[in-house]
Design a protein around this nucleic acid. Structure first.
Lengths: 169, 169
DNA sequence: GGTAAATAATTAGATATCAAACCAATTGAC
DNA sequence: GTCAATTGGTTTGATATCTAATTATTTACC
């Protein structure tokens, strides 16, 4: 088990403070690294829970979008989920294989394929949403809501700063 | 545990506030989703810069650890970088192929393999570290250092919260 | 109406990542 | 000294994700 602990008052590095002769700033102190670790912690945690119901992370994102609205085309789905289209194709392939969704060729525009949840796919909502809620609650346990809100806001700003526009969808 | 929060822009969802009949909380408001998006934004941004020097993200993490100290065994490297050993093996394979590192079987314990940077691998430091600094600076532009420090601390706490996952199932 | 451009989905090929199974060398218990 | 347990590394097979190229269909312009 990693025993790196939160020590308050950690130093934050900026490029202007560094020079190449100096030591590399420890990973723990770099935003990028911490974000990566949190992402992996979330991912592992949710994955462990939903795998029990035969659903993988790749499928999770698409299921979530489809619970909100199904009958979307693959392109629309990709945009909502924030993935590239080939990713969507492979995710939907596995979901179709497991009987969670159905592909229906659009009769008015035969290029399009509309995706519909099967009853099985739809019913997973009741089991899977609570899993996500558990993970979220576990992660934020003991954290002041106001602090959390500030952090989320700040993370949004980083996304914008880094020039990723998938934030505003 | 406080349930509501001061409205700094966005609402933060807790499991206790949700019920299945309600709409799925928008991705933008969920910590997990935002963290995922920030992670991908960082990753894409750094990747774009270092790819110009023929280095991939998978190699980056290991290079960074090796710049700090080389001659480590693969297991030690894995631990420092926070990756599983098979990941380390494949990363080192590609790095060896590109002449960035050298594997040297340890003569005192022939199970171990010590990893050493080649001059080429070592010299990349001067080009690549500034790339990371640029990304970090770009991401945190316009953000108060104190706020950033708070957010980083909070993210560390989430990692810890998600780490000891024994009691919620 | 016929072709060029655009759009939707897919395939192909690459990187990144992990868990589980596996080999090979070393250490420890007797 | 021998054999079982441990340790270090690798292989295998799976998921996740992207870019670039490909196929199929539709729209738009002369």
């Amino acid at each position: 088990m990693p025993e790196r602990l939160a020590n308050i008052g950690r130093k934050v590095f900026f490029a202007s403070e560094r020079s190449l002769g100096q030591a590399i700033p420890p990973s723990d102190d770099s935003v990028g690294y911490v974000v990566r670790d949190v992402h992996r912690a979330f991912s592992r945690s949710l994955q462990a829970k939903i795998a029990a119901h035969g659903v993988s992370m790749g499928q999770w994102f698409f299921l979530r979008a489809l619970w909100d609205e199904d009958g979307l085309t693959q392109r629309e789905l990709s945009q909502r989920v924030g993935m590239m289209e080939p990713t969507t194709v492979t995710a939907l392939n596995s979901m179709e294989r497991r009987g969670l969704v159905e592909r229906v060729r659009n009769p008015h525009d035969r290029r399009k394929v509309n995706i519909y949840l099967t009853p099985k796919g739809r019913s997973l909502r009741e089991v899977l949403l609570p899993c996500a809620a558990e993970v979220s609650d576990l992660a934020t346990r003991g954290i002041e809501p106001a602090d959390l809100a500030l952090a989320i806001d700040l993370l949004h700003r980083m996304i914008i700063n880094l020039g990723d526009s998938s934030d505003s969808l």
